[in-house]
């Protein structure tokens, strides 16, 4: 029995090492059903963070978790469910993906992992894809959403902002601070 190796910050200089070509394209943008998932990562003063790295991990559109190899190579066809992209100078990120299907009976969501200079230990959050009609039932039936104060629930919801486009901002601090998750409970 040994103890967990501690985390350290990803630092400012990961940009030539961790991002890979088309890393944000979990699916090809020409694929039917492809969506844009985008947003901005904000610090405690409301400024976009230009040196953050985001990872997306999700099931496919029917709720199946891929076991395919090749997560760091984009052939344009194989769905591995994994994406990685860095933020722009403005703090913006974009993934091209599909709306995740529900795994089991729960609400459908993708896992988002955030790394950044200044962040000593990564943060996990979830982006749920729900229409306004679906929100009440999904909140009641989801183990995480149901225990949040109602005013914090929207921080985990993707907002449709166009045809096939969803916005999901991440706020590290301050008003509407995003809900971050601790799975070590």
């Amino acid at each position: 029995m040994s103890e967990q190796t501690p985390s350290q910050t990803v630092g400012p200089f990961f940009g030539y090492a961790l991002p890979f070509e088309r890393g944000g394209e979990v699916v090809d943008r020409a694929q039917p059903g492809a969506i844009r998932l985008h947003g901005r990562v904000f610090d405690g003063e409301g400024i976009g963070i230009p040196d953050a790295l985001l990872e997306l991990w999700q099931p496919d559109g029917s709720g199946v978790i891929s076991r395919e190899l090749g997560s760091h190579e984009r052939d344009g066809y194989t769905f591995t469910g994994f994406g990685r992209t860095e933020t722009t100078r403005a703090g913006d990120y974009t993934f091209t993906t599909v709306t995740p299907g529900a795994v089991g009976g729960g609400a459908a969501y993708a896992l988002v992992t955030l790394f950044a200079r200044g962040l000593l230990h990564h943060l996990f959050t979830r982006v749920y894809f729900l229409t306004p009609d679906e929100v009440p039932a999904a909140v009641a039936g989801d183990a995480v959403l149901s225990k949040l104060p109602p005013e914090r629930v929207p921080t985990l919801l993707a907002v449709a902002d166009g045809a096939g486009s969803y916005r999901f901002d991440i706020r590290l601090q301050g008003e509407n601070e995003t809900v971050f998750l601790d799975f070590d409970a």
């Binding site: 610090d43 405690g44 003063e45 400024i47 963070i49 950044a116 200079r117 200044g118 962040l119 000593l120 943060l123 995480v144 225990k147 949040l148 590290l172 601090q173 301050g174 601070e177 995003t178 809900v179 971050f180 998750l181 601790d182 409970a185």
Partner: peptide, 10 residues
Amino acid sequence: LRHPTHALVK
């Protein structure tokens, strides 16, 4: 300015 101020949700 880059860490959550709320406790993480278990």
